[in-house]
Design a binder for these strands. Structure first.
Lengths: 201, 201
DNA sequence: AAAAACTAGTTACCATGAAACTATCCGGAG
DNA sequence: CTCCGGATAGTTTCATGGTAACTAGTTTTT
């Protein structure tokens, strides 16, 4: 029974929640949203959730506990974690923490093709991004101070802290780039493109 | 002919390169690697590349230019971009720049389940991450100064700058967290977990 | 001469994710 | 009282994405 090599964020979250208590899929989704984890794991549609559960079952990391039937409601299958599941969840987590995974977010990819656009278009687009990200950052900060005020320990909001830090860094950089494009410090000419294209290295 | 709603990083890159000159798939892969774009778009195996090209074809964004046969070598189909393709690439790019997309990297997801681990395990794992990221950061900085020395204009390395900035921010935050865990500023107790779990909000 | 790396493409499988569909039930607006 | 929206619970379909491995010839290195 080779456990799936990659513990996805969703699979890890399922194991974590089942460690708290046995749940049915919809309950898992609800908990993720209630605890605000839907900012870091995708459970928008339950499709992936059900498929993830299937995989965890066949890998022996969780098992069916019971199948409830609350009259007229669809059947709810309640799952619980196994001992293997508990162990594997720890391994996955340690691995995800220690080894940065090469992911390919679309923004840097987009940045690498700026030469297709005119300077104005670029700075306008980046400015729109600045506005959107500012709001997101404000939201994160509000959330953090709300939870702090609520008396929750800091360990439960490290992921929000992390998002705040990297969003703030992106924002600061974006603002400086937009500024430099607007005030003429950051320019380039058609000749540059040719030199770039010819560059053998 | 509804153009695929999401221009993926790879699709955008293919359009961008074909705008430079007609190419066959393998040539596209080579160019991506030569120009160092393989840090921001995934072309490890060409599977996705061929499928992406298929989609671009059926969407009318690129077309077959010719089919070469260089004796004994497999056939190489050379593609070129269409006018529609040129227009769509610009739209996609502007969109990707201006509108941040909710992506779900695994690290923040992992951070949100730290309660499964003991403090020591966490700080050890995070320290390993610090080491790996430091190396990655050094690599990025080396690359940037190499290109600068080579006389390439700054616009061609904004994506590397971006990666440097966010990696540096993550590193700084990681170091502070590890420090605070080691020196006892950041602790929590089993009682906290219960309070957290019971928390209705 | 053998091993490795490059050229070029294909196949199969698994994972991810969006969207829409089937149903039932409940609370509130009108 | 009825209709609407939203919550409950799960399924199906389709597009996309990624890994791995396989074929098969060629060039370069050891």
């Amino acid at each position: 029974m080779p456990t799936p090599r990659t513990g996805s964020p969703l699979a890890l979250t399922v194991l974590a929640l089942l460690q708290y208590k046995p749940l049915h899929p919809y309950g898992i989704q609800r908990l993720i949203k209630q605890w605000g984890k839907d900012k870091v794991v995708n459970v928008g549609q339950r499709t992936s959730l059900y498929r993830t559960i299937d995989r965890l079952i066949t890998a022996g990391l969780i098992r069916v506990r019971e199948t409830e039937r609350d009259q007229a409601y669809p059947e709810r299958t309640v799952y619980e974690i196994t001992d293997v599941g508990r162990a594997v969840a720890r391994e996955w987590l340690l691995d995800m923490l220690a080894m940065p995974k090469q992911e390919f977010p679309e923004f840097p990819a987009a940045l690498s093709h700026l030469l297709m656009l005119a300077p104005q278009e670029i700075s306008d687009a980046l400015e729109r991004r600045v506005r959107t990200l500012s709001e997101a950052l404000a939201g994160l900060e509000a959330e953090i101070s709300a939870e702090t005020g609520h008396g929750l320990p800091r360990i439960t909001m490290l992921e929000a802290e992390y998002l705040r830090v990297v969003t703030a860094a992106e924002l600061q950089w974006l603002r400086s780039v937009v500024d430099e494009m607007r005030n003429g410090e950051l320019t380039w000419s058609a000749a540059d493109l040719v030199a770039f294209a010819e560059s053998p290295e």
